Amino acid sequence: MSDHRFNPLLLLRAVLRPIDPVLMLVLMMLLGYAFVLMASASPDRLDSQLVNTTVALLAMWVAAWLPSQRLLSFALPLYALGVVLLVAVELFGEVSKGAQRWLHVGVTRIQPSELMKIAMPLMLAWYFQQREAKIGLREFIVAGLLLVVPVGLILIQPDLGTSLLVTAAGFYVIFFAGLSWKLIVPVGLVGIIGIGSIVAFGDTLCQPDVDWFGLREYQKQRVCTLLDPTRDPLGKGFHIIQSTIAIGSGGVVGKGWMDGTQTHLAFLPERHTDFIFAVLAEEFGLVGTLVLLVTYLALLARSFQIATQAPTLATKLLGGAMAMIFFTYAFVNMGMVSGILPVVGVPLPFISYGGTALVTLCLGVGILMGIRRGRPAS
């Protein structure tokens, strides 16, 4: 007779089957770091962050189980749904703090722009796979239009931070698909000239009566504040000034866990969300910062390894884009907290408090695990 007794070991193996050990180890290190910092920055939010983390890990596990081609089959419906919801936000969305980003659906409200962080690279990876035999200028133009539509809808909400992340997610797929440097270099040169002009003529351009085409007044002020935070040290420049003080005061080994003065005397704003990197630098110093950077590098290295070994063009593009999304989150957050980039509301990946960004990022990890599972056995 067969033995039908419950075997917990077999159940555990089944649960862990889609999990990539290296990615999971790195993710656990980052989440551990997050709880240590949260216990200092905002201990009353630990319970809710635990719930957020549980939901995010569950989402990661589900994504890891999905075969890559099955996941790609959702690309077009998810993209279309995201665009429809973004249009609905513009027509019927709720306004909060001067921005119209939320859509009320029954018992809760959602932020459709977050969906596009995953739907955009999925859509473009699927699109290039359909045209794998001949990828030329026409395909890149169509891909650019697919990217511009949702980004434009997000910009008018306005939400500069999310539009930046969605743009990056889409651009990485287009770049990895073979976008010519002849098209990239001119755009880069225009950007360099524009940034150089702002730096050179900042005093004139930042005058109250000067309008910046395409940017709202508060977005203009963010750039002007970056150029000179002391213009308004108790107002618009307060965030950057206090965060740079916190980072600099940490020194090599930091002031010690829960001993950060900028953090615990409430000088540091948004210390549990966008500016949690400043908490890390103040309490753990250069050593703690380097540990975090090495952990992020390990995440990127494993992600790119999975992407380069992926079996199809679409999974290579998708895996590479996911790796670069992790990089973009980290680079932009550390840059804005350190005062070298404007403040655009991008969280530190896997560390900052919040559920939406954490779920999105863990979905990205799950997608990479799913890509690895679809790799032919060597």
Rank of each mutant, 00 (worst) to 15 (best):
Thr263Asp: 11
Arg17Val: 08
Leu30Val: 07
Val210Ser: 03
Ser73Ala: 15
Pro342Ile: 09
Leu205Tyr: 11
Ser249Arg: 05
Trp102His: 08
Leu16Lys: 07
Val107Pro: 06
Ala246Lys: 01
Lys117Ile: 07
Val173Tyr: 10
Arg216Leu: 07
Gly152Val: 00
Gly374Thr: 03
Gln221Trp: 01
Ala307Lys: 02
Val149Ile: 15
Leu9Arg: 11
Val287Leu: 13
Gln129Asn: 08
Leu25Phe: 13
Ala168Ser: 13
Gln130Ile: 02
Met29His: 00
Gly82Gln: 08
Val223His: 02
Ile141Asp: 04
Ala34Met: 06
Gln157Glu: 15
Arg222Met: 09
Val332Ala: 08
Leu226Trp: 13
Leu164Ile: 12
Ile141Val: 15
Asn333Pro: 05
Thr167Tyr: 05
Leu81Cys: 12
Ser338His: 04
Ile192Val: 15
Val62Leu: 14
Lys255His: 13
Ala80Asp: 04
Thr230Ile: 00
Met38Phe: 01
Pro208Glu: 12
Pro77Ala: 06
Ile141Glu: 04
Met258Leu: 14
Pro43Phe: 05
Ile247Trp: 13
Thr308Met: 14
Val365Leu: 12
Pro311Gln: 08
Gln129Tyr: 10
Thr108Leu: 10
Leu227Gln: 02
Gly248Thr: 07
Val332Met: 07
Pro8Trp: 15
Leu265Val: 06
Val84His: 06
Leu50Gln: 12
Asp274Phe: 05
Leu183Met: 13
Asp3Cys: 04
Arg131Thr: 07
Arg17Glu: 13
Pro112Asp: 02
Val36Tyr: 11
Asp232Pro: 11
Arg375Gly: 01
Gly32Glu: 10
Ser352Thr: 09
Ser180Asp: 14
Ile325Pro: 00
Ser2Pro: 14
Trp181His: 11
Thr295Glu: 05
Ser303Phe: 12
Pro121Val: 13
Lys220Pro: 00
His264Met: 03
Gly320Tyr: 10
Leu368Arg: 04
Val55Thr: 11
Gly194His: 10
Gln69Cys: 00
Arg271Leu: 11
Leu76Glu: 11
Val22Ser: 01
Ile240Ser: 06
Thr328His: 07
Ala133Lys: 15
Pro8Thr: 15
Gln207Asn: 04
Ser73Asn: 14
Phe238Lys: 08
Leu27Thr: 13
Phe238Trp: 15
Leu37Lys: 07
Ala200Asn: 06
Gly335Lys: 01
Val105Asp: 05
Gly354Asp: 12
Gly250His: 01
Leu81Val: 14
Leu115Arg: 02
Thr360Asn: 10
Leu58Ala: 14
Gly248Leu: 10
Leu137Cys: 03
Leu292Ile: 07
Ala56Met: 11
Tyr296Arg: 01
Ala330Pro: 00
Leu286Asn: 02
Gly235Lys: 08
Tyr218Gln: 06
Leu215Gln: 04
Gly251His: 02
Met29Ala: 14
Gly251Met: 12
Gly136Leu: 07
Ala59Met: 12
Ala200Thr: 14
Leu313Val: 00
